[in-house]
Design a protein around this nucleic acid. Sequence first.
DNA 1: CCAAAATATGTGCATATGCATCTATTGTCA
DNA 2: TGACAATAGATGCATATGCACATATTTTGG
Lengths: 152, 152
Amino acid sequence: MAKTEPSRCNLTALRKATRRVSQLYDQVLATSGLRGTQRAILVYVRRSGAPTMGELAAALVLDRTALNHNLKPLERDGLLTIIVDKNDRRSRLVRLTKRGEARLEESQAAWLKAQERFETAFGARQAADLRQTLELIASLEFDERALGSPAS
Amino acid sequence: MAKTEPSRCNLTALRKATRRVSQLYDQVLATSGLRGTQRAILVYVRRSGAPTMGELAAALVLDRTALNHNLKPLERDGLLTIIVDKNDRRSRLVRLTKRGEARLEESQAAWLKAQERFETAFGARQAADLRQTLELIASLEFDERALGSPAS
DNA sequence: CCAAAATATGTGCATATGCATCTATTGTCA
DNA sequence: TGACAATAGATGCATATGCACATATTTTGG
C-alpha cells in the first residue's frame, strides 16, 4: 500500500485535472493579460457576433449570473460592450470592441503554446478524443439524461 | 453549418464539463450542507489522518493559498481543526472533528446518488476510464512533462 | 552560534462560480 | 385592456482559485 488509491469521485477527478491544466494555460497566457475563462468568452463572442447573455451562458455552460460577473472586468477594460437589444429590451447583446479583437489576436500565440505543451505531454489524438468526451458531458442532452430519471 | 463547431481549447472543454458535473453534484449534495470541493477535502483528510496543508494541497492539485481559503469555512463550522505541528512548527496538521466525520457520513448517500446519475448517463466503465485519464493529467509526472521542455 | 537561504503558511486582492432574490420587459388570456 | 405568468438580467452573498507579498520556523554554511 505504497500510494493512496485514487478517488472514485468523478467530480473530484474533473476538478483536479482542470486545476492542473488551468495552471498551465493561465501561466502561459499571463503575458497576454487574459485568463483562460476570459479568452473563452471573447472567442465565443467573436464567433457568434453579438450573442445575448443567455446564449453566451448556455454555450459556455455557465450560470447566467456567473457570466454576468465574468463580463464585468472585460467590459471595464473595454474589451467588449453590453447593450440593450432594441428588439427585446430584456436582452443584452454582447459585442467585441476593437480593443477586444486586438487582445484576442495578441493572446493567440500564447494560447497555441499552451495547447502545444498540453498535447506534447498528453498526445494530440488523445486530446481530441478527450475534448469530444468532455463536450458530450457538457452538452445539454447529457444533462437531461442525468436528470431525466431522478431516483429521488 | 447548423451548429457551432466545438472549441479546440482543451482547457475550455475541461471547464465546461466540470461546470456541468459540478452543477449535478452540488445540486444533489446541497441537502448535506457540503459542496463538492469541501467533501473532497474532508475525504482526503479522513483517509490520510492528519495531513499537513502542503500535503493536502498537493493531493488535491490545489494552490496552497487556495486550500488555505477553502479550509476557513470548514474550520469555522467545526468540521475540522488546524493545529501547529509540534515537530515542525512551520507546519499545520489538519484533522477531522467528530462533527466533520458525521457530516461526511451524512453526505455519503447524496454523493452516491450523484455518482449514480452521472454514471447512468455516461456509463460506469467510461467513467472509470475517464477518471483514470484525468488522474494522469492531474499527476505531477504529467505536469513535469508539460513543463519539462519549455519552448520559451 | 548567527546570518542567510529554504520551507510552510497566512493575508489581501482579483477573478470564477452559483444561489436566492430583485427589477425590468414581454407574452397571455380572461 | 389589465392582471399575471414568463423571460432576461442585475445584485448581494458565499465559496473557489491563484498571485504577490508578508510572516514564522527550520536548516545550513562559515
